[in-house]
Amino acid sequence: MINVFLLLGSNLGDRQTYLSKAIDHIERDIAPVILKSSVYKTQSWGRSDQPDYLNQVIMLSTDKPAQKILADILAIEKALGRERLEKWGSRTIDIDILFYGDDIICEADLTVPHPHLHKRGFTLEPLAEIAPRLHHPVLNKTVTDLKNDLADTLNIKKL
């Protein structure tokens, strides 16, 4: 079994409900959730003119291949009303694969570890809550080290 860390985010509609529904779908379609962080309210990253996000990190343990998880995640996002109209646009739900075990994946449609996770407080804060000693296989640092080195100054509030 492989530990998979996912980041959930929502900044449209009933954000908390979208996070909960995403977790329900993930548990039904991919694997049971083993750990989940608190929910964090964060400013929009990449585009400051959008509503604040609710973000949460969850950990699964599964034997599904990363590409299958990606396909399942995209189907869940679509089922929950996600529309991909613009890069970093507002969304009902966004689900990113942060880590797939210790694997390093560089494919056209999937890069793992997530290529931006070390730059984003809204990712590192909830990730550090549930996996502070998790090792980044490319950057050779723990999540805590990455969080401590973070230059991101966006406001992040634990709910």
Score class of each variant (00 low, 15 high):
K158T: 01
W88R: 12
Y18R: 11
Y18M: 06
H116P: 00
P51S: 07
R91V: 02
L70H: 14
A128P: 02
P132G: 03
A75R: 14
V138H: 08
I156W: 07
L127T: 00
S20D: 15
A66G: 05
L80E: 09
K64T: 12
L134Q: 11
I76N: 10
K68C: 06
R82K: 13
Y18I: 09
I73W: 09
A151C: 06
Y18P: 01
S20R: 15
L80V: 11
I69T: 09
E129H: 04
K21D: 14
I30M: 09
L139M: 10
G121D: 04
K158L: 00
P115H: 00
F122W: 02
P32Y: 11
I130S: 04
L6I: 11
N148K: 11
P137Y: 06
K21P: 08
S20N: 15
I69L: 10
V33D: 04
D103T: 14
D63V: 14
Y100S: 08
L159A: 04
G89D: 08
S44F: 04
W45A: 03
V4Q: 02
D29E: 15
I2C: 04
L150P: 08
L6E: 08
T123Q: 00
K21W: 13
I34C: 10
K41T: 12
D24I: 13
I26G: 05
L12K: 12
D109S: 13
P65T: 15
K87G: 03
V33A: 01
D103A: 14
T17G: 09
V138M: 09
A131G: 02
Q43G: 09
E27W: 09
M1R: 07
K78F: 10
T92H: 04
E125P: 00
D63P: 12
V33C: 09
A108R: 00
Q43H: 11
P126K: 02
Q43F: 09
L127K: 00
I58L: 08
R47W: 09
P132W: 06
L70E: 11
W45C: 07
M1W: 02
D49Y: 09
K78C: 12
L19N: 03
V57W: 03
E77F: 05
R133C: 02
P137T: 12
V143L: 06
A75P: 04
E77Y: 10
D145G: 03
I58N: 02
E77P: 05
S38Q: 10
I95A: 07
T92Y: 12
D24M: 14
A151Q: 15
G101N: 10
S44L: 08
L60G: 02
W45K: 10
R84F: 08
S48Y: 13
K87L: 11
L134H: 07
L150A: 01
Q67S: 11
F5I: 04
I58W: 05
I26W: 04
